[in-house]
Design a protein around this nucleic acid. Sequence first.
DNA 1: TAAAAAAGTTAGTTATGACTAACAAATCTT
DNA 2: AAGATTTGTTAGTCATAACTAACTTTTTTA
Lengths: 228, 228
Amino acid sequence: MTNKSYLNNLTKSEEDYLKALFQLLIENDSMKVGNNQLADYLKVSPASTNNMVKKLKTKNYVINEKYGKLDLTDEGKSIAVRLIRKHRLWETFLCNYLNFTWDEVHDVAEQLEHIKSRKLIDELDRFMDFPKKDPHGELIPNANGEYSILPKVTLSSLLEGDVCKLIAVNDGSVNFLKYVSEIGLALSSEIKILEIREFDKSIRIQFNNTEETVTRKFADNVFVKKVV
Amino acid sequence: MTNKSYLNNLTKSEEDYLKALFQLLIENDSMKVGNNQLADYLKVSPASTNNMVKKLKTKNYVINEKYGKLDLTDEGKSIAVRLIRKHRLWETFLCNYLNFTWDEVHDVAEQLEHIKSRKLIDELDRFMDFPKKDPHGELIPNANGEYSILPKVTLSSLLEGDVCKLIAVNDGSVNFLKYVSEIGLALSSEIKILEIREFDKSIRIQFNNTEETVTRKFADNVFVKKVV
DNA sequence: TAAAAAAGTTAGTTATGACTAACAAATCTT
DNA sequence: AAGATTTGTTAGTCATAACTAACTTTTTTA
């Protein structure tokens, strides 16, 4: 048996930790995720995290030596990817069929991703005709757990005069997502960098015949593909 | 504020107890549901039930005096009805859109009914164009919690020569549901009672140009509307 | 109606997964 | 390299919700 992770019966908490660790590992380019960092991310005390890490270590999902950094086993990764698949498929369903907006989907998808049924998620995938991307532009892992990661070029990494296309946004903050829609940005919008102000690194951009000034922090959460 | 029950934050367990009690009260014609009966139904020890009943009493969902029978407050009923609404809408979705069969839906719907989002369930309802009945023939409460109960005439209560239409089946047992589909019965099937055998109360029935003998126990779980 | 059975309750235990407080190890800083 | 800071660990507590075992009340039935 190569991979039976989809029939493991993990608690909601265990799943949350595995997914969080997976996402931190990606954000940090697979290097050095610490216990407290994970605690922070999950808004939980370091002691709780330490406990859970021990548990997940005995279950062979997490690799960690005392006072050392955290990593996931292949099993652990596989579970995390399945959770991300479920999360993104549900988000897609909520947006495309149930009239949810960008900023409303996250909380509900957090609940739905813990529903245990292989058939449910694979049928949902089929029902939507195997979507490739979720409403935030993130790639959806397929039923075999194959997972590609979008190369994350932030808007803030570009230079004056560059032109790019919005391919994804960070879905961590409801307020950010609302803001993005309010100013009229959407996936695939073409954005031109007009000016980067030295003083506060704020950026004047142009899109859809509009001009707008955004902060550096904003631009850090917008992922783009350079066009020119 | 007349009714805000949909924003109460109950645990999965609390919800399970309320729904179970509601269903037992209906089965027993609203009379005399006991602690141990509830324990039995939920496959849990009487001590656990006793504990939870106390908790739900202080929260004003359950009515019960020491050594007395159990009942639900209006609040309690309202929560239970919302759970039943969610359960039946999800079952309908799974059957009609995700290729689930009769016997596969129950377990997944048990999980889905605990997802907390008013918008999710109301939009799902709209998406399916406000279905009236779930795949087992049971009525789906509407968004205002209005709930009608099917008059439950069992197949076993009819007499020789009667003709009836199958309107619902008990969804408690996977094996029963599989059996129903296997012999070719479905909602709206017209059934004629050919003979009731005195010896073991087994019943010879005719439907779709087939004849079949079913047991009394089987007939107890098939709900019909008398036609002739 | 008194004994037996059934139903309900209480007390005490367990597992999960949070928490705080106190402590230990590792890493910065100068 | 020593002290300070950050990071990680341990011990002990709490709430939830299950359990068993022992006990009490109610109901049945002989």
